[in-house]
Simulated assay, not measured.
Amino acid sequence: MLTVHHLGISQSERIVWLCEELGLDYEYKRYSRREDNRLAPDEYKALHPMGIAPVIQDGDLVLGESGAICEYIDRKYGAAKHCLDVSHPDFADHLFWFHFTNGTFMTNGMMQLMLSMAEPKNPMPAEFVADRTAKAWTMVEQRLGEAEFFGGSQLTLADIMMVYCITTARMFRDTTLDEMPNTAAYLQRIGQRDAYKRAWEKCEPGIPPHLT
């Protein structure tokens, strides 16, 4: 039995959403963050050597890392429904955004968050990260004005990965979508998907999704 371990307000929501999109029969376990430091509780950290979300178990396998988990589940249980074949016209776009998510976009956000909490010494790093972050958001808005999904004409793992970054991750920062109409419209489309609604209700009951 596939088991998805979800840490509240974390990247592991991606895995729950993918499982719902695929209509899988899976075991779901939710963990609340600690009250004192908002980090994962000890029982979650014990699941994987990195001690961070997401984590799944599948038989004897324990697997971490969002991208690896998404591809594993989609290929093993979903007949690669959300992984485009090399012959597909959207293959390169899907591949780019799938890897851009945590390779660049999330990295920018984490650097920005860490710098905001550090004692200001040299403004250059903050300016460098701010510029990279602004460019990345501009790319997001441009892409969603060109295509219905990040991966092109259909929902792919690129969307499963990217949506967290432009929704829940914004709870940790003050990024708004006021000047991003394409992104805002895209999130409204995502929010209407039954699988996304089911996943969000499981992951964060009582909290509205950050779609605006």
Rank of each mutant, 00 (worst) to 15 (best):
Y186A: 06
V55L: 15
A92G: 13
H48T: 01
T107L: 10
E20D: 13
D93I: 15
F100Q: 08
R33V: 00
E204H: 12
F98E: 02
A184Y: 10
D90C: 11
A158R: 04
E148H: 12
Y44A: 02
D25K: 14
D60T: 08
A199N: 03
R173K: 06
M111S: 04
A126S: 09
S153I: 04
R38G: 00
T101V: 11
E146L: 09
A46N: 01
R189G: 13
N122R: 03
V129M: 02
G191R: 04
D36V: 01
D85F: 09
F98M: 11
V62M: 07
Q57T: 12
G59Y: 08
C70L: 15
G151T: 08
P208I: 03
N102W: 12
H88N: 12
V163L: 09
R132N: 13
E35N: 02
P120D: 04
E204I: 00
R193I: 11
S10K: 01
V4M: 15
K45R: 15
F150P: 01
R198S: 14
P49V: 02
P123T: 01
Y72M: 03
D159M: 09
G191T: 08
A185H: 02
F98L: 12
E119Y: 04
M171P: 00
R75N: 06
D131R: 13
G151Q: 05
A130L: 04
M139G: 05
M124L: 13
D174Y: 12
L47N: 02
D25A: 15
W200S: 00
G103S: 13
